[in-house]
């Protein structure tokens, strides 16, 4: 249920910083990134180029792709200097 006019902050202010994370853009994609861990050197170049900030790092290493937000643009695969990422058809997507 969407909130009524008495329940929302005044003036359209949004008081929960960064709450767009509640909105998943992952279902936009037709292709999803797959990483070849053998080729990946954890240079983290892809992390910086990803428009969705969905390549997650743990202890200085690439941990996973957060597919809840990945829109499937393929920039990570194109920019990887080691060709460690390939875009594969997202079988869960509705074609």
């Amino acid at each position: 249920m969407k909130k009524n006019y008495k329940q929302i902050p005044i003036g359209g202010m949004i008081t929960k910083a960064g709450n767009s994370e509640e909105y998943k853009t992952g279902d936009w994609k037709s292709f999803k990134p797959e990483r070849d861990e053998k080729k990946c050197t954890n240079c983290l170049i892809c992390v910086n180029y990803c428009p969705e900030n969905c390549i997650k790092v743990k202890n200085g290493k690439l941990n996973h792709f957060d597919l809840d937000y990945c829109k499937g643009c393929g920039i990570c695969a194109t920019e990887c200097p080691f060709k460690a990422i390939v875009m594969e058809l997202d079988t869960e997507c509705e074609l």
């Binding site: 994370e21 992390v47 428009p51 900030n53 200085g60 643009c73 920039i75």
Partner: peptide
Amino acid sequence: FKELAMASNKLASGHRSCAGCGFPSIVRT
């Protein structure tokens, strides 16, 4: 790139710019 990747981010996921849009990484950086 490594340090940049781990620097504190101020633009969260879940925004709705088109796939492949140029500005999210610009604004974050």
